[in-house]
Design a protein around this nucleic acid. Structure first.
Length: 339
DNA sequence: AATGCGGGGCC
DNA sequence: GGCCCAGCATT
């Protein structure tokens, strides 16, 4: 029995993680959002800091988006933080601060899709909904031999039907945790630990030697290269930052004034018709999932800080108050340390 | 159905 | 250098 085996394995082998000690929906929600497309090891310190800074839905709702993004800085996929802040305010204001307690209501909230709604429903409200995340796709496609592309409608439907049929109605909470933990620790993407697997005797992939070719994912990656020139205008202890507002990466985060070009440039000052002294130039290659950012940081000593509606003149010592992309954080830490 | 959205760890 | 991670929103 598939579910029984996984539950039994889980009870002996699960990791003790802070969100497993509670069924409080706010805590479960925060943990699930943080763990979207994010490994436990990477998300764990963010979870602890986030809960310490925003211990309740009310505290999150009463904060500013900037404060929330500041906590999120460095974790990536910042729409998660923006949507959480939006949803916290929505629940606080329009739902009397009470978290929706069933899948059909949870799914309506911004930032909550099928996986997260199922997880909160199962973990917080004892509603038997099967969670389907990357682990589940991998485990089920291997064990039960789902050969369809899991990005296709057919593949998703088969996994969905299979997941629903396997869900034990009474122990769904433990089972949901178990299958994901099993995928994370045993049925891993590379080098799965088949020698310690508890369902190896019924596993299609093991029998056929197809562990590494399942799940089948057909996708094309077109990575594009972009050239960012960050201009760090400095006058005494003041610098200039601006907020990113476009529908682009790092939305609502701050940065140094940016000139994006189609290729590397020699002299941004000439381009901007500005007079100043370049006192540092640092080039950094920053890798995102589908973009390569070739960044140049031009540190410019200038007599008059440039004026523009979107420019904020701030003391260098205040820079840490603004949420910034990792690449900006890295530069600031190395070259703009005050003290 | 396809695309955009971060950053990091692993091979 | 590619792949993937407790996905979701938008087009």
């Amino acid at each position: 029995m598939f579910a029984v085996s996984l539950i039994s394995w889980y009870k002996k082998n699960y990791r003790k993680l802070p969100w497993r000690n509670t069924n409080e929906p706010y805590i479960i929600w925060v943990s699930e959002i943080i763990l979207q497309q994010t490994r436990v090891d990477q998300g764990l310190p963010y979870f602890k800091n986030f809960i310490e800074r925003f211990p309740s839905l009310a505290s999150l709702a009463k904060s500013t988006e900037e404060e929330v993004l500041n906590q999120w800085q460095g974790l990536g996929y910042y729409s998660r933080a923006r949507n959480m802040h939006y949803t916290a305010k929505y629940i606080f204001t329009h739902l009397d601060g009470v978290f929706p307690n069933e899948y059909n209501e949870l799914i309506k909230l911004k930032g909550i899709g099928d996986y997260t709604a199922s997880a909160i429903a199962s973990f917080s409200f004892n509603e038997p909904k099967a969670v389907i995340d990357g682990n589940v796709y991998r485990v089920l496609s291997r064990v039960f031999g789902i050969l369809n592309d899991i990005n296709s409608k057919e593949g998703k439907n088969r996994i969905k039907n299979l997941a629903d049929s396997l869900l034990p109605k009474n122990e769904h909470t433990t089972y949901n945790q178990a299958i994901m933990e099993f995928g994370a620790l045993i049925c891993t993407p590379k080098a799965p630990k088949c020698e310690t697997c508890v369902v190896t005797d019924i596993c299609y992939a093991k029998e056929k030697g197809k562990q590494l070719s399942l799940p089948l994912k057909i996708k094309k990656v077109n990575t594009k290269t972009r050239y960012f020139n960050f201009l760090i205008f400095q006058l005494n202890d003041f610098i200039v930052v601006e907020k990113r507002t476009d529908k682009d990466i790092w939305q609502h985060l701050y940065q140094f004034p940016l000139i994006e070009t189609s290729k590397e440039i020699e002299d941004p000052l000439a381009l901007k018709k500005l007079n100043g002294d370049i006192i540092n130039l640092k080039k950094v290659k920053h890798l995102l999932t589908h973009q390569v950012i070739m960044a140049s940081f031009w540190h410019i000593s200038i007599q008059t800080l440039p004026e523009k509606k979107s420019y904020l003149k701030i003391p260098l010592s205040d820079l840490h108050k603004y949420p910034v992309p990792k690449i900006v954080e890295n530069y600031a830490k190395e070259y703009l340390t005050i003290n």
